[in-house]
């Protein structure tokens, strides 16, 4: 196998929480806890999980938009994290971000044209003419009209704003685009347009996506491989077919059983698994499996409460972190 475009090794992100007196040691929220994955060129890796599972934090840490506690991120085999300030800044042209909220992700005081061209202004040395040409091309590619270049964000609709965000993310010809729930703030009709646009752009510019979502339907539509996150950990990692056909982790099973379906047969076949209990307190992580407290098939005798289970291989393209699987 050739080198992956992006490889993330043992990424950890912790946020200090200060409580009480200043000399007391800070507690840490373990937002991302030892996450590793690879992304191959041209594929789309999905990252799914409930709110607070650390999806967005992982994405921000991969792009070094927040600092990580530990871990290595390699882009094209070179360590992205150990770059000095200026090289890191220039390397940002290769990792771009599409944000969740099309309203707060565009600076209200700049024109659409100005917002879209920002990465080129900062990262590439282009003449005015080249800059204008790039902007024209990218406006065309994302389906915005040239006369909208001079407009301000408040004059656009949500879907159009997200197109501006996408244009900004791909104008610097990045190798990796991190899409952080790019459609969850949009209504369903517009969601489909934006998802298809993302797929078209992927083919056209040979992009690689790290696609974050909590919507399994969207993930099924977009992703080649999927990592399921729970409380800062990857609990299952698989290609799309296997994950949706034979989920191994109890959390994934519960998640998939909750997907509504119009297919009556499927509705009857799939039994809804309802989880009880709450996720554990991220400030005091439990020693065992993070999911143990809510797991319907938790079993003390196989070590569920002692240590977090390692990722076990189910098949060549399917891994799961659960003790139950081994037996």
């Amino acid at each position: 196998m050739n080198t992956p475009l992006l490889s993330v090794e043992n990424l950890k992100v912790r946020f200090p929480v200060k409580r009480g007196l200043p000399w007391k040691a800070a507690q840490y929220v373990h937002a991302v806890d030892d996450v590793s994955f690879d992304i191959q060129r041209g594929e789309t890796l999905g990252l799914v999980g409930e709110s607070g599972s650390g999806k967005t934090t992982t994405a921000l840490a991969v792009a070094k938009l927040i600092n990580s506690w530990e871990g290595v991120v390699k882009l094209n085999g070179t360590d992205f994290f150990s770059l000095d300030k200026e090289s890191l800044r220039l390397e940002r042209a290769n990792i771009q971000f599409i944000f969740q909220d099309p309203y707060s992700s565009l600076n209200p005081r700049l024109t659409a044209e100005r917002i879209v061209s920002e990465p080129l202004r900062q990262l590439k040395n282009l003449s005015k003419k080249e800059l204008a040409e790039s902007v024209d091309d990218i406006f065309d590619a994302v389906g915005l009209r040239p006369e909208q270049k001079k407009l301000f964000p408040h004059q656009f609709s949500g879907g159009q704003r997200q197109r501006i965000g996408i244009a900004r993310a791909i104008i610097s010809k990045p190798q990796l685009v991190i899409c952080d729930e790019p459609v969850s703030a949009l209504d369903v009709a517009v969601q489909a347009q934006i998802l298809n646009l993302l797929r078209d752009l992927q083919k056209r510019f040979n992009l690689t996506y790290l696609f974050i979502s909590h919507d399994l339907g969207v993930v099924q539509h977009m992703c080649d491989r999927i990592a399921v996150m729970y409380m800062g950990k990857i609990v299952e990692f698989s290609n799309r077919m296997e994950l949706f056909n034979s989920p191994q982790h109890p959390y994934t099973q519960a998640l998939l059983s909750a997907v509504p379906s119009v297919d009556r047969k499927r509705r009857e076949r799939v039994q809804r698994i309802v989880l009880s209990g709450d996720p554990p307190d991220p400030l005091n992580p439990v020693p065992g499996c993070h999911f143990a407290a809510r797991c319907p098939s938790v079993d003390e005798s196989i070590g569920c409460l002692k240590k977090f289970p390692p990722l076990d291989t189910v098949s060549e393209s399917h891994q799961v972190a659960c003790y139950r699987f081994k037996r």
């Binding site: 938009l65 220039l90 707060s104 600076n107 990465p119 900062q122």
Partner: peptide, 14 residues
């Protein structure tokens, strides 16, 4: 902490 500031940082702004 608004996203457009993060976006500008991702665009390589100093």
């Amino acid at each position: 902490q608004l996203e457009y500031v993060t976006a500008s940082r991702a665009s390589g702004m100093k």
